[in-house]
Structures are given as C-alpha cells and as structure tokens.
C-alpha cells in the first residue's frame, strides 16, 4: 500500500470508519500473524495477542500522528500486547505451552514425509529457541532477522534507540546460535555441499 492510500485510510479510521481500519490491518495482517506467532509460540496465544492488538489499535487510532508508518505503529502495539499477554500468563515460563504440537500444525508444505518431518522438527526447534530468549531480544530478532524490518523501523516498534535494538539483535543471534547448534552444523554442511 502506498503512503497516500495509507494516509487516506488512517484519516477515515480516525473519523470512525471501522472498515478503513480493517483495510489497514489487512495490509499488514500476514506479517502481524507471523510476528505474534513467533513471539508467543502458539496459534492460540498469537490469536489472543492479535485480537488485543487489533482492538487497541482501533481504540487508539486517533492518537496515531503519522510520524511512523502505520505498520510500524501497529507492530509496536502488537509487541506491547504480547508483553501484556505474557504477564497475564504469569507463572507460565517462556518456552512452555504446547509449542511443539502447535508449531507443527502451522507447518504445511513438503509432500515428502521425510522432508515434512524435517521441516516440522526445524520449525519446532526454532520456535523453542525463540521462546527461550528474553522478550526484548525475541522481539528484536523477529522484527529484523525474520521479518526484514529496517533497524530504524524495528527500533521505532520496540520504542528504543537504534543502538539498543542492534545490540538486542546481535545478542539474540548469539543465543539462538548456541541453542540451534546441531541444526546450524547440518545447515552449514548442506550449504558447503552446494
């Protein structure tokens, strides 16, 4: 969506047009879902977070000043909703909660059973490793390394300076690499073999 179309929809949303707000969400929904899923580790929790973020966004659209793009603003709301969700879950430790099963459900893809099993295993391992990260680092690495946001956009979404964001991404990578060492070794071998 170009920026002029986005601004028009924002103005209509601020005037109370829910359809316009839905259209804004629609433009970012796939990335928002991936982000929510990567942050929480399950469809059910991602669903909670998305619903909450959508509602918060709708309620707060009049406060959106247009300094950032709508997507960045919405992702910031989504990150906060994920943090609130985590606090509500309270005692549930990061990384727990049916991640493996639901993660597997989220992976469709390869027709070959072996490939499919490998894809499931990788998906689950990656998700488990993500869930073991501190929340700020998880958010940072998902925004940048998974979703390809610029450092400036990700910093805006996380509400932190760009330098802090860069450190979070670097540290998250270090931790993820340690957790996923067996997969990195095999990925490295496959890469060199090509």
């Amino acid at each position: 969506m170009d920026i002029d179309a986005e601004r028009r929809l924002v103005r209509r949303s601020q005037a109370g047009d829910r359809g316009a707000f839905d259209a804004l969400i629609r433009a970012h929904r796939d990335r928002a879902y991936r982000l929510a899923y990567r942050l929480t580790g399950s469809h059910a929790d991602a669903d909670d977070v998305l619903q909450e973020a959508w509602l918060r966004g709708y309620r707060g659209i009049t406060e959106f000043g247009g300094r950032a793009r709508f997507g960045t603003w919405f992702f910031r709301i989504l990150l906060r909703a994920a943090a609130s969700h985590r606090r509500r879950l309270g005692r549930r430790a990061d990384g727990e909660g049916g991640t493996a099963l639901e993660g597997s459900e989220a992976v469709s893809g390869a027709a070959d059973p072996q490939q499919r099993a490998a894809a499931h295993e990788l998906h689950d391992a990656l998700q488990e490793a993500l869930c073991s990260l501190p929340a700020d680092q998880r958010g940072a690495v998902v925004l940048v390394a998974f979703e390809g946001l610029s450092y400036a956009e990700a910093a805006e979404a996380q509400g932190c300076p760009e330098g802090t964001l860069a450190w979070r991404v670097a540290e998250a990578r270090r931790r993820l690499a340690r957790k996923l060492a067996p997969y990195l070794d095999s990925a490295g071998e496959a890469h060199h073999a090509m």
């Binding site: 929904r29 690499a177 997969y183 890469h191």
Partner: peptide, 17 residues
Amino acid sequence: RCRALQRLIGQSVAPAA
C-alpha cells in the same frame, strides 16, 4: 554462526493463518 543461523531462518516455514 550468524550466517548459518540466517540460512536456517530462511529455510524455515513461516507460520500463516
């Protein structure tokens, strides 16, 4: 390790609704 990790992320299937 970072490069290998990024390749791994690229290979993973993105969750979708």
